[in-house]
Design a protein around this nucleic acid. Structure first.
Lengths: 252, 252
DNA sequence: CGCGACCTTGAAGAACGTCAATGGTCGTGG
DNA sequence: CCACGACCATTGACGTTCTTCAAGGTCGCG
């Protein structure tokens, strides 16, 4: 567990926000000037836990994070996966108690920013505030889409949909291309995100492989047929509210 | 379908926001001064639809609304239920295309406010803006809680949880008391909200009745044993981020 | 080379869905 | 006031999807 300041380009938050709005030089500088303590995490380490009252937010620099809730008897629901540039606990600025936990998926690098510094930035840069506000609304839209899957889609469709979503999000910020994406998510993680057992996830993934839609190995996803995967997954990217030109190409 | 201005007390948005923050007289006046066109709706009428690009927001004055998404073959997922004082499509200020639809559950009265007027209010009253932001974050917290239910709870638990949530929300704004609440939600609505078939909802409700936890008839819910219902439903109201004193009394 | 983490497989059972018919209740119009 | 229709709740029989349990198998890494 190390803590150190961070001042390297490209700043992940700048990259993320510029996929939503164009920033002025001043706005970019204001973001880069945010005091941030950097910390390196191993796999499966909690960052904030349900019940905590954090005084800082967490910016994901590298790796993936996930949010989750635990129930008794080991039942777990994963609520979201996050990629570089996300601020998964931005809500803690306005809701002082955490109603879920946040942890690293694989090894990850995060930066902590004090709430007061974030609030200062939001006050000084209304357009940045707007972009972050918009981003939390997109988060909520993703929650809704997951609800649709959890409530009304079968296992194979849920998995295909999630893979399309993850690829699309990574593609939008430049973390994936050519229908290939880093994928440090185990089948048990998928199960907990999709409300399934890991056994059934395994069998459903094999279905997708058998149809030659994907290759999904230890740490990477390769989409072999984007259109058909999107069709099987009932994937319509409207809910991600991306710029059209940031969506994956329709062609295989 | 009628349209007329609205100037009556108590203003539902004032009542709702005062359950979150205390408002000054100026803030109350600013809200009451919002130009609003009132419309009366029958049951099951769409207000905005997936794909629309609205230029106004909808304030629910009386009755209940719900948000939903349709899939093919009649599959439907209800995403949220809303009560008086809610602004279910506030997000349309920042996300210009609707990714889901909004409709009335029973007969309802709503007021439409132009985006530009809402934005004016938010600019003039930062604390109102903060309260509304907080409210959309609570919405997102409710989505997460529903994801937990859809993914990891069985039918009986899901229903009990939803009933606890609805009663608690209504209680917080004074729409329910004495463990009794208006409930214009059909079993088919419950099914579409909980990711179940209406047949299975029916059988699970009968389970709850048999344990003498609830009486649920045409239009009202009576909770006969709050503690045990909350226990069966694994209900912990933390995620609603209410003032502690606005929660239902622990005693039966 | 051995250990731990993850993936894969088979068999049996539980939870939930589907289909189809019946019954209740409420408002409405004759 | 009664009869009707619409909408909703209820019931039974039967299928399907998914879970659980338990046992290997594979891969990477110290």
């Amino acid at each position: 567990v190390q803590h150190r300041p961070y001042h390297t380009d490209p700043h992940p938050l700048v990259r993320k926000l510029e996929s939503i709005v164009d920033l002025t030089a001043e706005e970019r500088d204001a973001i880069r000037a945010l005091p941030m303590m950097v910390r390196t995490l191993n796999a499966d380490q909690d960052i904030v836990r349900e019940g905590d009252r954090p005084s800082q937010c967490c910016l994901l620099i590298e790796g993936m994070l996930f949010r989750y809730r635990m129930l008794d008897e080991g039942r777990r629901q994963i609520l979201a996966f996050h990629i570089s540039g996300d601020v998964p606990d931005l809500q803690s600025i306005h809701l002082n108690i955490m109603d879920h936990s946040l942890a690293s998926l694989g090894p990850a690098t995060v930066g902590f920013v004090q709430h007061r510094d974030v609030l200062g930035l939001l006050g000084r840069c209304p357009r940045v505030a707007g972009a972050l506000w918009r981003d939390t609304l997109i988060d909520a839209a993703i929650f809704r889409e997951w609800m649709v899957g959890l409530g009304r889609r079968d296992a194979e469709t849920r998995i295909a949909h999630l893979l399309c979503e993850l690829y699309t999000k990574m593609h939008a910020v430049g973390l994936a291309k050519d229908h290939s994406a880093p994928m440090p998510i185990t089948q048990e993680n998928f199960a907990d995100a999709l409300g399934l057992s890991s056994v059934h996830v395994n069998r459903s993934i094999q279905e997708l492989r058998a149809q030659n839609l994907i290759a999904l190995s230890r740490k990477t996803l390769d989409i072999k047929n984007w259109e058909r995967l999107a069709k099987v997954g009932e994937f319509d990217p409207t809910y991600l509210h991306l710029n059209p030109e940031r969506r994956p190409a329709a062609a295989h």
